[in-house]
Simulated scan of single mutants.
Amino acid sequence: MSRPGLFISFEGIDGSGKSTQARLLAEALRAQGREVVLTREPGGSPGAEEIRKLVLTGERDRWSAETELLLFTAARRDHLERTIAPAIAAGQVVICDRFADSTRMYQGLSRGDLRAAVDQLHDLMIGREPDLTLLIDIDPATGLGRALSRGGDEERFESFGEGLQEKMRAGFLALAEEFSDRFVTIDGNRPLEDVAVDVAAVAGAHLS
């Protein structure tokens, strides 16, 4: 009998270390014999990766919050259809670096007070949440410093500064309370190895 699939998302402010923790968890589960799909948002499918280029590069005012919401939702729908849903149906573990909770924060809270619109569009076009969401919580100033030190051309949201980081952290913690049935908050202000131990323990409990 095949094992059931599981959908795990990682959330957190920029520079929280969630991408590293998602990768480490994928490696650990693969070492245990699990089939794992490690993916990201925006992106994770060819069409969604094209949209990623549109929303993460360019000037701060390139898109309105409303336009960003539509673009992110379009990317997520393609990602869901082509990557996430087929993998879960095949019994694989999907580990996703960001999902709809990031849109609830970035477009729904910090960019335009569009939370109701985010949820309505999500219900209409996406219709599912992760089975488990791991929130890597970190000091906003530390996170921003890490994010900016990465360099590259995908720094459109980092350019909004520490004020956005602080607002986002508070928003993610509020989401963790709102969706307490699937959120687990993990202290990211520690060595990555210690964080990874906690991440693996939480994920393991859901997979047992």
Rank of each mutant, 00 (worst) to 15 (best):
L135Q: 09
E59S: 15
E177V: 04
I186M: 12
A31F: 07
I84S: 03
V184I: 13
S19Y: 04
Q120N: 06
R3E: 12
L164F: 15
L135V: 08
A117R: 15
A176N: 12
F72E: 00
S45L: 09
E177P: 04
E154T: 11
M1Y: 14
L80V: 00
Q32M: 12
P4T: 09
A203D: 02
S9V: 00
I126P: 00
S19T: 15
L144P: 05
S64Q: 14
A100S: 06
L132V: 10
S19I: 09
R40Q: 07
R82D: 14
G112P: 09
A100Q: 08
T185V: 14
V93K: 01
F7C: 01
M125D: 00
S2T: 15
G163T: 10
D14Y: 07
G5C: 14
Q92D: 11
A205D: 05
G15V: 13
T185W: 04
V93Q: 02
T57K: 13
F10N: 00
V36I: 06
L69T: 03
G43S: 07
G171C: 11
E41F: 06
A116C: 00
D153R: 13
T67Y: 05
D97W: 03
P86Q: 09
K167S: 11
V93T: 11
F179H: 12
L109G: 04
T185P: 11
S2D: 14
R150S: 04
E166C: 11
L25A: 05
G5Q: 13
G161E: 04
A201V: 14
Q120F: 09
K53W: 03
D153Y: 08
K167E: 13
D194A: 12
G15A: 11
